[in-house]
Design a protein around this nucleic acid. Structure first.
Lengths: 218, 218
DNA sequence: ACCTGCACTGAGAACGCGCTGAGAGCATTC
DNA sequence: GAATGCTCTCAGCGCGTTCTCAGTGCAGGT
């Protein structure tokens, strides 16, 4: 996760506390460097202060979303006006915390965001709907029954729809870091997925890009 | 990538760390030699220290941009004044990091810069659009079906559009360092590309510069 | 006009990528 | 204990892709 806050004391405290909770923490002290780090899109969740030198938290969030990065963001602020919160949430924040906050509450919120995966509980790509909360997939309203592995594969491809995802990336994201399976397993499961999608008339959703990977068209 | 820093310790550390991340690293220890290396325009990203013997990082960046080299530059400095950052970004830097910085943040920033290629994941050269995320090519909206090798070749030429790229450079960039193929392979694939581009009315995009290489007009 | 060498092209051979059917291993259910 | 469903490997097939080779055309220099 990424922590963006201008107070070194807070950064150190969160770094220590969250590391102890088993999380991997990277910190940044100002808006521009926080934005740069966040743009990499490799974080699972971001804690973002509003009062920041260089670039306010609002702006950082705005730029992030504008660039298509939908990493969940937990905003943190000393102010507690209702409007501040509304502004933040409207810009695409996934949570809001007022300083001073209890460390336990922070951890609880972060865990909630992490569990949701990307903060977006429902992906819609044309007629394809992947409801991550209900763990269900439909095509034009018709339900598609998927095994856990098939679902995880389609969810990952849908999350990154419009971009080609390589088999190795899929192995990492769907099968986990231990990479117990071979690349052929990905091919097999793409085959399973296609068969089930074709049965409801959605065979063309999952495209092969030879030599590179697979792609769900946006 | 190119790392320009006057401290040998930093150079060695980055060389080792970034190589381990799968990047190819070249280093320079002072301003003039850094500038000379950077002017070749063959780097994907440059890490540039501000305090340099011979020529400051600001000047190096200034000269680079003045010469039309738009390789992404990540500036690094021991100072952390707001004005320094503003100066750097105004001169055309693409990121700013204050020493001492976390290695993870550095890598995250570099990946963000690399992923965007020259600022965007989507290259537009007139009617030609190379969507690097979807690995798709269109001419005036019409899709162009390309094999992996053909795509890689066109993408490299498009990335460096406006400059003549030699066959050896293309072999390095597209075929990889092992250079398993001969120069004739480049000629053959340029032929394939031209045939497919002509089919959608874009035959003139890929120009031959006899004795030097190939060129995609900006 | 001649020569040299670079660029281009058609043909063809080898390769390897992606897909599939079959089946083994394992857990769960009845 | 049989049946069912899921996961994953293996071997083989088809075919697009890759790349070399040999021959032709053309540009530039003398």
């Amino acid at each position: 996760m990424l922590v963006v806050d201008d107070e070194p004391g807070i950064r150190r405290a969160l770094q220590r506390g969250l590391t102890a909770e088993g999380m991997e923490v990277v910190t940044a002290g100002d808006g521009p460097s926080g934005l740069q780090a966040a743009l990499s899109g490799t974080f699972d969740v971001i804690v973002l202060d509003i009062m920041l030198p260089g670039l306010s938290g609002y702006r950082v969030l705005q730029r992030l979303r504008a660039d298509g990065v939908n990493t969940p963001v937990l905003m943190v602020s000393a102010k507690d006006g209702e409007y501040d919160q509304a502004d933040g949430l409207e810009l695409g924040a996934d949570g809001y915390l007022v300083k001073p906050f209890s460390f336990v509450v922070l951890v609880a919120q972060l865990r909630a965001l992490l569990r949701r995966g990307d903060g977006v509980s429902r992906l819609s790509i044309g007629d394809l709907v992947v409801d991550r909360a209900a763990r269900a997939v439909t095509w034009a309203g018709r339900p598609v029954e998927l095994s856990p592995r098939e679902y995880a594969l389609l969810a990952e491809l849908s999350r990154r729809s419009g971009t080609v995802v390589s088999k190795d990336e899929l192995l990492n994201a769907v099968w986990g870091d231990e990479q117990a399976a071979t690349r052929n397993a990905v091919e097999v499961y793409v085959g399973y997925l296609r068969r089930k999608l074709e049965a409801v008339g959605a065979g063309h959703v999952l495209r092969t890009v030879r030599g590179h990977g697979y792609l769900v068209e946006p």
